[in-house]
């Protein structure tokens, strides 16, 4: 308990120091993108990793979060924290509702239904004239950036706070009684139900949490890119990253998506600068295929396998020596 929060505070303070010490805005743009991936990866993993319901449409909630933010900004000019909370609430409710409709499906059928849901969401947004429809909407960056040097620094810190909240929640969930129930569902849903686990209720909790953090990750997005249209909000790149990061890091533990997001996110940002931004999606694809075929447990799984083998090779000779 103590160590996690100490680390989280440390990360937050480091973020603050970073905004104070560094002037080049590029780092904050990069940092924002990585943190966005981290939040989405953590959100995806609550349903896809902990519970075992692989979801191809969850990035749709990210887009909805972004558009809730656009709509409320236009209608009421609410400040950013309210937009984030509102997006989180709306997307959480949507997660609950779509979960109720789709979570009775299993495996590939569930995955396909989530893909269909993302397409429905995109169609709805594309035809929602108030937020710009297919042609998109411009958002003027607010002038006031509190005590930060620029608005992107403020957005970076906002994302850092959401990321810490998302990771803290995922960690709490995975160590709680609910988390044990989710693991049981992932391992064998029928056995879990027969052992007293209220499977439908826990799956809905999981889908709601996924929706909340996806929505929150999307809410600041329009202010970040200043022009949002369905193509950018429903971008394949964002959607694929949200799934690739947990798979690369490891889906069974809360820190898996964090590791995956940092590694994949950093690699992408570095290649954008050094090689080309077009190469990014290719990198995700190749790395993802590599991990799925060679290390389905992700980096965390690799490390666990490795340490288990070392333990065994250490234990084996001494056990033989005793006899």
């Amino acid at each position: 308990m103590g160590r996690f929060w100490l680390g989280a505070t440390g990360v937050f303070m480091a973020g603050l120091l970073f905004t104070g010490a560094v002037d080049n805005e590029f780092y904050f743009f990069s940092g924002y993108v990585i943190l966005q991936g981290l939040i989405m990866a953590t959100a995806w993993n609550i349903l896809g990793g902990f519970t075992g319901y692989v979801n191809f449409g969850s990035a749709g909630f990210f887009a909805v979060g972004a558009y809730i933010s656009v709509a409320l900004h236009q209608a009421l000019a609410l400040p950013l924290p309210f937009l984030i909370l509102a997006s989180g609430m709306v997307c959480g409710l949507m997660g609950l509702a779509t979960g109720y409709l789709t979570l009775r499906l299993k495996g590939i059928y569930f995955a396909i239904s989530t893909l269909a849901m993302a397409i429905v969401l995109e169609t709805v947004i594309t035809n929602w004239e108030y937020v710009g429809g297919a042609s998109g909407a411009y958002i003027l960056t607010p002038k006031d950036s509190l005590f930060f040097a620029s608005y992107v620094e403020l957005l970076f810190m906002v994302m850092l706070i959401i990321a810490i909240a998302a990771v803290a929640f995922a960690r709490y969930l995975s160590t709680s009684r609910t988390g044990k129930g989710l693991t049981a569902i992932r391992d064998d849903e029928l056995a879990a139900e027969c052992m007293g686990v209220p499977t439908l209720r826990l799956k809905l909790v999981s889908a709601t949490a996924m929706g909340v953090f996806m929505g929150m990750a999307g809410a600041p997005f329009p202010f970040f890119i200043t022009f949002v249209d369905p193509l950018s909000a429903f971008s394949l790149f964002i959607a694929v990253n949200a799934i690739a990061m947990p798979l690369i890091g490891g889906t069974k533990v809360w820190y898996g998506p964090v590791i995956g997001a940092l590694i994949l996110g950093l690699t992408q940002e570095i290649t954008t600068v050094t090689i080309s931004s077009e190469l990014n999606l290719l990198i995700v694809g190749v790395v993802l295929i590599g991990f799925i075929t060679l290390a389905p447990g992700g980096i965390v799984g690799l490390v666990q396998d490795f340490s288990r083998k070392r333990l065994r090779s250490k234990a084996a000779p001494s056990a033989g020596g005793d006899r």
């Binding site: 693991t183 992932r186 029928l190 056995a191 052992m195 007293g196 069974k252």
Partner: peptide, 27 residues
Amino acid sequence: ARSFQIPKPFRSMTVIENLLVPLEFAA
């Protein structure tokens, strides 16, 4: 309570963790 014809253990857990699920939910 029931057992299954084809064993359905919670594969990602240890033996004792398998027992904690019914203890923490059913019982």
